[in-house]
Design a protein around this nucleic acid. Structure first.
Length: 1004
RNA sequence: AGGCGCGUAGCUCAGUUGGUUAGAGCGCUACCUUGACACGGUAGAGGUCAGGAGUUCGAGUCUCCUCGUGCCUACCA
């Protein structure tokens, strides 16, 4: 296979001395997009044998700019997608943007205002045209930012919620729901945003705590003359006096003795010429205010309900912009607050304002515009989520509830992580109200309903009908309302995959009623839907759990339950759910745990942070702090630390390349094709093209990794592979264990554990130990053993290369850069992202080597500490004495070179007697003394030993307490008791040794 | 008014069904410019796990209470 020209790669191994993300990241971001590396073709067959990992990007608003929340969300999705892809799965990540009705319309309207014109001046058609051209110019900004993050999405499948593919699907969904009797139109009280003049759903309303006023207003009985008191008037309490103009009754509780005698009487509504009745209704709470409540059915949802119960007229007194709409009245045309002041002052004038009190209250506010919501009676379209379809099937809501409850097998079709969100979801689902889906906007999916110009009958269909089914007239006017943006986003998991397909039913087609299905027969399943639905996972924030996640579950279950499975079988709920798992992440807050907000001025722009620290460092920071269920306090200090980590990786690579180059000069070349064998010399050649690895030889291949296979000269000639040095056997074991731990962590969405595990491995083990020790084996002199150097260098490169692959989902840029530099122009794949993810079985694990290495590390660390205490100059080597068992003596003897290099030991003398004294230290395994003349700081040493002694004493006491406790011995499991015994013995040894050391110190 | 979280080192956070002497990063102290790396190395200091009671052989982990703190849901005029 011919590789890309890679003109951007340097010809040699020279990496710049300092790591500078800005020069590498944009280059690779472009490369990934340009080479279409993450595009997934629609499989020829759903039986292509690969596991599918499908994930839908929560579409950012087309008006949006990338914020830290997006970055966290996308980093997590990218890590998972890259991980699944490298494990050999078909990983499909679908990107797109949302048309965002209100936000986009507002933005363009603001533009028009600044140009001195307006939406209404332009007219609907021209305005919509204008929004489209805005979108064409700026709508891609957020996706461009996403490219900068390295998101490995399939750009060939990019969607827009109003594009030509999705719009017909949205209409189709609406038509079907209408035909199923689940969408209805009616006049109800809705949340009205007077600023942008549309209805919004309950979810789009936030409540704000405010100190308002409670006005007590006296309504006189009809015919009564002042002065007024309890006998000839009634006092009501209200926070909104202006709405009294729309009152059509006053309600009292039927059991309220104060007012029983007044029920049925008529009141003269002040400031108007209207008379209204006093009615009895349970809703009136005798405890609140005066116990009498004014009833304004057209401007309050509770009052609307009362009005219905008592057949009261609905009197609308406010227009769409919340101005009084009562032609002829002195208040006509006044803004609601202006009217309130005016009405209050007039009531004072006629002495009907009894009292005004401060009153803490919650005010409903529009989430988008911040305007105070006006409950308003208006004609709207609703989705009846709780309604049981006539066919006898389940309601939309019930399907959505079943989808997350456990089925017979004990596993729910959809699982939530963290689990807690399932409860929150269910609580909401169980208290669902009908969803107001119409918006009085111009930007959005226009509702596919037509009103006959003759008889006003409604037709709902994809396209305008030819004739009215009621009166056969051929003139229609289309509904002017558009759909709630969330209606179309709620369909995305299947509309992006091709639902409903080419074939569509005609309204009223035969067979519909009989099967309960709205699909035509035969139905040709769209190939993407067959291959990728249901998707695997949804990653999102809590804030859109109800807005989006719940709606997708409802609509996904509803619309795909009658879509046959690829094999023709009937689909069950488990296959109708839009995704199998939901992972909810936290909020990204600032370093002080404050919510980021424009008003606080603490918003962190991801692009700024990326420019300062590099995408890889920011990604790694977010991942390493992303513990499920908790918010992230974004820390610059930590990002700095992770940039340092990237720099560390960079320099480790430079070390590697320096040695490869030196080796080349000495006539040694590393055969890169033999790397897999270096990682697992005992096994058959590891085929990197096989994601299943040695344990799964039947697995599919997906990347040309080991092009040449393992060359014969790399294989050990004898049947026994030569014993590798201790540090090699150890690092391979650690690599194996690290790979297993990372896989485990990612399976559980423990991004923090995965990131920290890799960090610890790469820095704390690979760099701090392996790289330092391996320097001993890299000898390029005339008389040095070239074969040994070749093996060591090949192993080093193999371990490092595997580590890069392990790290690459987290830090895709730097790993890509170094990986390409390593192979120069001959990479085995177009990207490290297309290679195999390291699996624990890829590496020869050797537990004996691991524990031996731990002993060596203990010894080295102890000697280093002693040297420091004794004041040995860094560069000076010193002899040591060692007292230990035979195993450790043999181990130390065999690894003298390691000891010499890592702890500057000039020679070792093995002592048969225990060692103590100021220049000695003990662990449970050994005593070691450093021979050095200089006197140590006796008081400091005594203090340290005394502290240690106290610690051991405490440990012994605790252990003894348990070991002498019969109940513990009887009930505790064996491994706990054994562990405690062992620990007790070790502590006892340490205690004795420390005590001896203290005594020796006392004599000196 | 209901519901859900959180409180662990100076700071930001891990701590998986209760199990041996509670971890990380940053910061701090001391020494080291050693041929990958000062965005570095080495060795250290630092915690009565908010407080109290209980269950248990055993509690940071489970239960209850108190204090502090954050969020969500709700039609109280």
């Amino acid at each position: 296979m011919s590789q890309q020209s890679n003109s951007q790669q340097p010809e040699n191994h020279e990496l710049p001395k300092a790591y500078d993300p800005s020069v590498i990241e944009e280059r690779w971001a472009e490369y990934w997009v340009k080479e279409r590396l993450f595009d997934v073709p629609t499989p020829e067959s759903t039986q292509d044998g690969t596991t599918k990992f499908t994930i839908l990007l929560p579409p950012p608003n087309v008006t949006g700019r990338l914020h830290m929340g997006h970055m966290l969300n996308q980093t997590e999705m990218d890590i998972l997608t890259r991980w699944h892809r490298m494990r050999g799965e078909t990983a499909l990540w679908i990107p797109g943007t949302d048309h965002a009705g209100i936000a986009t319309q507002m933005m363009v309207e603001r533009q028009l205002t600044s140009e001195g014109t307006s939406r209404k001046e332009l007219g609907r058609e021209a305005f919509v045209e204008r929004v489209w051209s805005w979108r064409k110019l700026y709508g891609g900004a957020i996706l461009d930012q996403m490219k900068r993050l390295g998101a490995s999405v399939d750009w060939s499948r990019e969607y827009f919620t109003m594009d030509d593919r999705l719009s017909p699907a949205v209409k189709e969904a609406f038509v079907r729901l209408y035909e199923q009797g689940l969408i209805y139109r009616g006049a109800y009280i809705v949340n009205w945003d007077p600023s942008i003049q549309t209805a919004v759903s309950d979810l789009e309303v936030e409540s704000e705590e405010r100190i308002g006023k409670l006005y007590y207003i006296r309504y006189p009985l009809v015919g009564a003359l002042g002065p007024f008191d309890e006998s000839n008037s009634i006092v009501i309490a209200t926070t909104r006096p202006e709405t009294m103009l729309g009152d059509t009754a006053v309600a009292v509780n039927p059991n309220d003795d104060r007012y029983k005698h007044l029920i049925g009487a008529m009141l003269q509504l002040p400031l108007t010429h209207r008379e209204i009745p006093i009615i009895a209704d349970d809703w009136a709470n005798p405890e609140f205010g005066t116990g009498a409540v004014k009833v304004t059915p057209a401007h309050d949802p509770n009052d609307f309900a009362i009005g219905k119960r008592h057949n009261l007229p609905n009197l609308t007194i406010l227009d769409e912009t919340a101005h009084i709409d009562l032609p002829g009245s002195p208040f006509h045309g006044k803004d609601r607050y202006e009217a309130r002041d005016l009405i209050v002052s007039q009531l004072v004038g006629i002495e009907l304002l009894a009292q005004v009190k401060d009153h803490p209250m919650t005010v409903p506010v529009s989430q988008r515009t911040g305007a105070v919501i006006e409950p308003r009676l208006s004609m709207q379209w609703f989705l009846a989520v709780n309604k049981i379809p006539a066919s006898g099937g389940k309601s939309i809501a019930q399907n959505a509830i079943d989808a997350v409850e456990q089925d017979g097998s004990g596993k729910a079709p959809i699982t939530f992580t963290p689990e807690m969100y399932k409860k929150i979801y269910l609580e909401w689902m169980n208290n669902l109200h009908d969803w107001c889906i119409s918006r009085q906007l111009w930007w959005g999916h226009r509702i596919p309903a037509w009103y006959c110009d003759n008889c006003k009958a409604i037709s709902v269909a994809q396209t305008q009908p030819a004739r009215c089914s009621n009166c056969s007239y051929n003139g229609f006017t289309q509904e002017t309302d558009v759909l709630d943006t969330w209606f179309s986003s709620g369909l995305l998991p299947f509309t992006t995959l091709g639902w409903p397909g080419d074939q569509r039913i005609e309204s009223g087609e035969q067979g519909v009623e009989s099967t309960g299905s709205l699909l035509p027969t035969p139905y040709s399943l769209p190939p993407d839907l067959a291959a990728f639905y249901p998707t695997s996972l949804l990653v999102t924030g809590f804030d859109i759990l109800f807005f989006w996640v719940a709606r997708m579950i409802m609509l996904g279950c509803h619309f795909t339950l009658d879509v046959p499975m690829p094999n023709g079988n009937k689909r069950t709920l488990a296959d109708a759910v839009p995704f199998k798992e939901v992972y909810i992440h936290g909020l990204v807050r600032d370093a002080d745990r404050q919510k980021m907000s424009k008003t606080k001025g603490n918003v962190i722009n991801p692009i700024d942070i990326i420019e300062r620290f590099g995408t890889d460092a920011v990604r790694f920071t977010l991942a390493s702090m992303a513990s499920p269920g908790t918010d992230i306090a974004f820390s610059e200090a930590r990002t700095e630390g992770n940039r340092a980590f990237a720099n560390k990786i960079w320099n480790a690579a430079r070390f590697l390349f320096m040695n490869i180059d030196r080796a080349k000069e000495a006539g040694i070349t590393v055969n890169l094709a033999t790397l897999p064998a270096a990682l697992h010399p005992a096994a058959n050649p590891v085929d990197h093209t096989n994601p299943g690895g040695p344990t799964n030889p039947g697995g599919p291949s997906f990347a040309p990794f080991a092009k040449g296979g393992v060359s014969s000269e790399a294989r050990p000639s004898s049947s026994e592979p030569p014993q590798q040095p201790l540090e090699t056997r150890w690092i391979l074991t650690r690599l194996s264990e690290t790979s297993a731990a990372v896989d485990r962590a990612l399976t559980d969405y423990r991004f923090d554990e995965a990131a920290n595990t890799i960090y610890q491995f790469f820095w704390g083990e690979l760099c701090d130990w392996y790289l330092e020790i391996v320097k001993l084996r890299l000898n390029f002199g005339e008389n040095d053993d070239k074969q040994a150097t070749t093996v060591a260098l090949t192993t080093l490169v193999a371990v490092f290369e595997a580590s890069l692959r392990l790290l690459s989902p987290f830090m895709p840029f730097i790993t890509e850069e170094i990986w390409h530099a390593l192979y120069r122009n001959d990479t085995p794949a177009k990207s490290i992202a297309l290679t195999r993810y390291p699996q624990s079985t890829d590496f020869l694990a050797d537990p004996i080597a691991e524990s031996a290495m731990t002993t060596m590390q203990d010894l080295i660390t102890t000697v280093r500490a002693l040297r420091k205490e004794l004041g040995v100059p860094e560069k000076e080597s010193t002899p040591i004495h060692l007292h230990a068992n035979n195993r450790i003596v043999a181990l130390t003897d065999a690894n003298q070179d390691m000891l010499s290099r890592m702890a500057r030991v000039s020679s070792i003398e093995f002592a048969s007697e225990p060692l103590s004294g100021a220049n000695a230290r003990s662990t449970a395994d050994f005593d070691v003394a450093v021979l050095y003349e200089r006197q140590i700081d006796v008081p400091a040493e005594r203090e340290r030993l005394t502290k240690d002694l106290a610690k051991y004493e405490k440990g012994l006491e605790a252990a003894n307490r348990q070991l002498n406790n019969e109940a513990f011995m009887a009930k505790a499991p064996a491994h706990i008791v054994d562990g405690l015994r062992k620990q007790h013995a070790e502590t006892e040894t340490l205690y004795d040794k420390t005590k001896a050391a203290l005594e020796t110190l006392g004599r000196e």
